[in-house]
């Protein structure tokens, strides 16, 4: 589900080489775009990103407590806590939690968390940050 906006942030192994692209072209595939053009495509909008997750379903508000500080001293690492109201039984449990950082310079999914089975009341605070600078500091 990752959607890199530049070739630099694309996953290294996911990128077809020029040779592969040329071979595909020679094999008769109609390739209208070069790999460079494909990777330089416009970043997906928030609606597009949500649409990829919901696949057409209309999301309902509520049921989730999203705790993020309004003001942070250091934007390199921001603690986020997510709490979902759910009985977490075999028949009724949360399957996925997606976090999208819309104003992130790399407008991408920040995190996707899957709670697969037998979990208690879920509270998963990952550290999400706008990746402008690199931080070596421990987030806690």
């Amino acid at each position: 589900m990752s959607s890199p906006i530049s070739s630099a942030c694309a996953r290294p192994e996911a990128r077809p080489s020029r040779r592969e692209v040329m071979a595909a072209g020679a094999a008769g595939f109609a390739l209208a775009i070069s790999p460079a053009a494909a990777y330089a495509a416009a970043p997906p909008t928030l609606a597009e990103l949500i649409g990829r997750i919901t696949e057409g379903a209309v999301p309902a508000r509520g049921g989730i407590v999203f705790d993020i500080p309004q003001l942070v001293e250091n934007g390199n690492s921001v603690d986020v806590a997510i709490q979902v109201e759910s009985p977490m039984t075999e028949s009724d449990h949360v399957r996925w939690i997606h976090v999208i950082a819309e104003k992130n310079p790399y407008p991408d999914m920040a995190a996707s968390i899957s709670v697969l089975a037998a979990a208690g009341p879920t509270s998963a605070p990952p550290c999400v940050s706008p990746p402008r600078k690199r931080s070596w500091r421990s987030p806690r």
Binding site: M109, A110, R137
Partner: peptide, 9 residues
Amino acid sequence: HTGISANPF
């Protein structure tokens, strides 16, 4: 994804 900070917790 790329939005996760260094040293993720």
